[in-house]
């Protein structure tokens, strides 16, 4: 009976140790471990970054990266099983869905900016988007200066609308704007001649042009109008989860896995049409990978 106190002590210590490791997990990591699942927010049509093939299948550069991050989370938490659920989001609902816990990690095409940093946190930037001008190859438009007196299309609910507005004011230009309800609609405006140019994220323009009846009819021209860092979005004030996500991305950059993924989605033929986007890794994205950071859009300057 003399041993009892000691055994008791050991038991208590062991229990204490267990409870500590369970208490260590807070926020999203605890939720993932407890539920055995993670919900990734994704987009249905964000060019090669994130899109759907239908039937609940979601693919793309950021989607695949999100799956890899989920696999690393599973490893970090020592779980044997982790179910990945996809939740398609839109520009309107992505922030509320992350805030209210429906989505744990959103990897789509979300720009990291100061306004959003008040509501959510961002992982390190994984893609730097450049807003460009798409026009018909024979239009004679070579840059923003040539848009004077022309009709310019862009998509409702995107930051490109604001970019265009700022450019118009800064350069004292006069052009007519038309707004497509989605990217396909805006591209139709350009294709049917209702608009002379389409201003949008470069990779979206490249993707749309590559899927056109005759891709050679379209050309991306002129200067970069705006630079936007895109990153995965997660709940604010959850440093443990942010660290696991960031570590996973940094490891992918270091091992060259991210570069391989980029090549797969942007340089090789991709489903469903087996067309190539054909957009080489930009200097800005290379820089973001070389020095991983989560600087907001406001700290970027035009090249």
């Amino acid at each position: 009976m003399k041993l009892l106190p000691k055994t008791g002590f050991v038991l208590v210590t062991a229990l204490f140790a267990l409870s500590v490791s369970a208490q260590d997990l807070t926020g999203t990591l605890k939720k993932i471990k407890d539920s055995g699942s993670i919900t990734l927010g994704t987009r249905e049509s964000s060019g090669a970054l994130a899109y759907t093939l239908g039937d609940g299948k979601y693919v793309g550069f950021h989607t695949e990266m999100g799956e890899k991050i989920a696999a690393d989370i599973k490893k970090a938490l020592g779980m044997s099983q982790l179910a990945i659920k996809f939740q398609p989001v839109t520009s309107q609902n992505r922030i509320p869905l992350v805030q209210n816990g429906t989505v744990d990690l959103e990897c789509g095409s979300t720009t990291n900016n100061l306004a959003r940093q008040k509501d959510v946190a961002f992982a390190v930037t994984t893609y730097v988007e450049e807003v460009r001008i798409l026009t018909k190859a024979n239009s004679g438009i070579k840059g923003i200066a040539d848009l004077n007196g022309k009709t310019v299309a862009t998509t409702t609910g995107t930051t490109s609308v604001q970019t265009l507005r700022k450019n118009r004011r800064a350069q004292g230009m006069d052009f007519k704007e038309v707004f497509g309800k989605d990217h396909a609609d805006s591209f139709l405006l350009l294709e049917s001649g209702r608009a002379d140019a389409f201003v949008m994220d470069g990779q979206i323009l490249a993707g749309l042009a590559s899927k056109a009846k005759n891709p050679a009819d379209f050309k991306i021209v002129g200067e970069v109008l705006s630079v936007e860092p895109l990153a995965c979005m997660l709940r604010k004030d959850d440093p443990a989860f942010l660290k696991v996500v960031d570590d996973s991305i940094k490891a992918m950059i270091k091992s060259g896995e991210l570069a391989k993924m980029y090549d797969k989605w942007f340089m090789q033929p991709i489903p469903p049409a087996n067309a190539k986007v054909g957009l080489p890794l930009s200097e800005a994205t290379k820089q973001a990978w070389a020095h991983p950071n989560n600087k907001p859009m406001e700290e970027y300057t035009l090249p």
Partner: peptide, 23 residues
């Protein structure tokens, strides 16, 4: 009509909430 490029209230709502994040 926002779908055919009329900059009316619904268009404003969709666009401004994207710019300000105050949906």
């Amino acid at each position: 009509a926002f779908a055919v490029s009329i900059t009316e209230l619904t268009f404003f709502a969709m666009q401004a909430q994207e710019e300000t994040s105050r949906g």
